[in-house]
């Protein structure tokens, strides 16, 4: 039995790349959520530079995947929404990071 990687083995991590995370806007959102406990919409919009509509669409996709939790509430009389990465989202991001690292490390210089 040989220990050398076959072409199929080398491509395996690429096939496992999570497409929900891989979109650049969602990746940017997740990177910001990964390094904090939680943020509100305004903060995330300022940090990512996305428009309200874009941010909302991508957050909905991430919420559907179970990667983020969106809690709507009120701050005084104004609506206020906090967003945080779920355990599932954190694990998925870690896997994504590992897979990408492996794919990139396997590429020739």
């Amino acid at each position: 039995m040989s220990g050398a990687k076959t072409d199929e083995d080398k491509l395996h991590p690429l096939a496992e790349i999570d497409n929900v995370i891989h979109a650049s806007a969602r990746l940017m959102v997740l990177v910001h959520l990964y390094v904090v406990e939680s943020v509100d919409y305004v903060f995330l919009k300022n940090q990512t530079g996305l428009s309200w509509g874009n941010l909302s669409t991508h957050l909905n996709k991430l919420e559907e995947a179970g990667y983020v939790s969106i809690k709507k509430g009120f701050k005084g009389k104004k609506p206020h929404t906090m967003i945080h990465l779920t355990k599932q989202g954190r694990a998925a991001f870690k896997d994504y990071k590992q897979n990408m690292q492996q794919v990139l490390d396997d590429l020739p210089d």
Binding site: V35, V36, V39, D40, V42, F43, L44, H80, M82
Partner: peptide, 14 residues
């Protein structure tokens, strides 16, 4: 705060 938004920092920063 209304302009910059709210952030709760992660465990490392805390």
């Amino acid at each position: 705060t209304p302009r910059v938004g709210v952030v709760k920092y992660g465990q490392w920063r805390v």
